[in-house]
């Protein structure tokens, strides 16, 4: 039986590396989590005030609901999810080829465009990191 990503040191170590890079790309990052698509936190950075398990569960539900809407409306694959609120925004992207979601919370100092670009680059970088043995 293969180890689930949240229990697998390969995912944890490379996830930490990728999330560290995200902070450099977007300094207004408040919190970021790499989670399994069924809502287990693999790694998270910044934001000690957040409950990482709860954040991961909510990100998992949000991702699945957004994917379901795209599927229902026959829009093809859902590429990302954005929750834009008065005091910040959350960007979520899937990591290709893995049952993983990257979810990142930015303050309102960052534009959504920059946050989105940073999150997508981080997900691609993680995909590359995971390809190496």
């Amino acid at each position: 039986m293969t180890l689930a990503p949240h229990l697998d040191s390969k995912y944890i170590v490379r996830g930490e590396l990728a999330l560290g890079g995200l902070r450099d790309l977007a300094p207004s990052l408040r919190y970021a989590s790499l989670l399994t698509e069924d809502g287990f936190s693999v790694v998270s950075v910044a934001g000690k005030e957040f409950d990482s398990d709860r954040f991961a569960s909510m990100a998992s539900s949000t991702q699945a609901l957004a994917d379901a809407v795209a599927r229902e409306l026959q829009l093809g694959d859902n590429e990302f999810v954005i929750v834009a609120a008065a005091h910040g925004h959350v960007v979520q992207v899937r990591v290709d080829d893995h049952p993983l979601v990257l979810a990142a919370l930015f303050t309102d100092k960052e534009t959504i465009g920059i946050s989105l670009t940073a999150a997508r680059r981080t997900a691609r970088r993680l995909n590359t990191l995971l390809m190496a043995n």
Binding site: T36, S57, S60, D67, A68
Partner: peptide, 23 residues
């Protein structure tokens, strides 16, 4: 049915490939 299944990382609780994560 509208479903929100995701790959199940917790095979010890229920050994099935997917699990519902929203509704």
């Amino acid at each position: 049915v509208v479903s929100t299944e995701a790959a199940n990382s917790d095979r010890t609780v229920a050994d099935k490939p997917t699990t519902t994560v929203a509704l």
